[in-house]
Nucleic acid binder design. Structure first.
Lengths: 117, 117
DNA sequence: CTCTTTGTTGAACGATTGTTCAACTGTATT
DNA sequence: AATACAGTTGAACAATCGTTCAACAAAGAG
């Protein structure tokens, strides 16, 4: 009997693999999930999100708070915006950013829970 | 009056910055949070975690399921192990991995919620 | 209009990441 | 002891990422 897997081993528990395979999400869903959490996977962005979880802030304030350039903040905010994690409003020259919904707070809290165990 | 920030702009709302600054976590906490979520920020690891959220599986089965080498799976599982996201038990030659706690399931569910909006 | 300041953008660069490959360990079988 | 298979490990490589810099847009002030 011929097997042709793209991996370098045989199936040990075929019924387990089939059972789980039927429950898997689509490739795109995993990519979407990963893209979302990738944004939480950088200390600067995490700090940015945590700051915004407390109040709306402008780019300049965020730059001062984190001690990085406006450019760096702006680049990161753009990424967060594209994934609908933050929203913004413009008032004159100043652009105020805030969290788009409550998921961010929950995700940060859950992460802290896991770490403090 | 002399200001000396490491960023390239003035403080626009000093009281906002001070208020948020007093609530910030430590640098290490942000690094810890980011390191945790970085692990969810890759489609392969996400698939791995989602598979394990359904049942305990061995390295070989996971490799077949994802269509990658045992080596790749093992490298990723090691990273997940070091952050206490998965645990393992050995039975003879075979090493069975499973989720270390319920946080992983919750995090995946919350991510799916955010995406489906 | 000119000047100043906030914010955005794209290119460039070094740093980090994920996979593969090859060599290795550990356990069981003969 | 020799073989076979599950799993781990480290080096190497391409790909991705985060920051900086310089140039630019957008808005207000003189």
């Amino acid at each position: 009997m011929e097997k042709n897997y793209s991996c370098d081993c045989e199936v040990i528990h075929e019924e387990a693999v089939n059972e789980v395979r039927s429950q898997l999400l689509s490739k795109d869903e995993y990519i979407g999930l990963a893209s979302l959490y990738k944004l939480f996977g950088d200390a600067t962005r995490m700090q940015l999100l945590h700051a915004l979880s407390q109040r709306e802030m402008c780019v300049c304030d965020l730059a001062v708070l984190l001690g990085v350039t406006k450019s760096a903040v702006s680049h990161q905010l753009k990424a967060l915006r594209l994934s609908n994690l933050v929203k913004f409003r413009r008032d004159g020259q100043i652009v105020y950013y805030s969290l788009a919904d409550d998921h961010v707070k929950l995700i940060i809290e859950m992460g802290l829970e896991h770490i403090n165990e």
